[in-house]
Amino acid sequence: MSVLEGKERRIIGFLCNWCSYGGADTAGVGRFSQPTDLRIIRVPCSGRINPLFIIKALLSGADGVLVSGCHPRDCHYAEGNFYARRRLEMCKQLLPAVGIDPLRFEYTWVSASEGQRWQQVVTDFTAQIHQLPPALRFSESPDLELLRQCG
């Protein structure tokens, strides 16, 4: 069991507990229907997110990674999302260098009251990922095949 073949892509979300996770809850409470592709990992703050989590997910076969935190200046921990903003932007800039389409990664800000905005973010990002070809699994990598041929 994994994502449904042909129907879903593997999308991982990292959401801060105080704003965006709450916003996703608000969207649920409001029954704002969304695509089923996204799996959400809860972290205390967007500043907790190490860009390596994102790279690791994408290298491990995730088709897309979405990060969402509190709006800048509205961080539960005062300034965590300012650090997050710099790190995430840097991460996005660096993705092509490791051979990953930067469109596979987005970061955004959604507050706990913005259920409708969350619905929009998920819908748009999922559509964006469906536009891209499925990510290669490590076992399917042509480089791996090359390595194998080289013995």
Binding site: M1, V3, E8, A27, G28, S33, Q34, P35, T36
Partner: peptide, 27 residues
């Protein structure tokens, strides 16, 4: 595993939802 706000309330596709819920439990 949040299978209500993040799964059952936001989609009606039972197959996809059950699959997603299972993944969230595994996580």
């Amino acid at each position: 595993a949040n299978i209500r706000e993040h799964v059952s309330w936001i989609g009606k596709d039972k197959e996809a939802n059950t699959n997603k819920a299972t993944e969230l439990v595994r996580m």
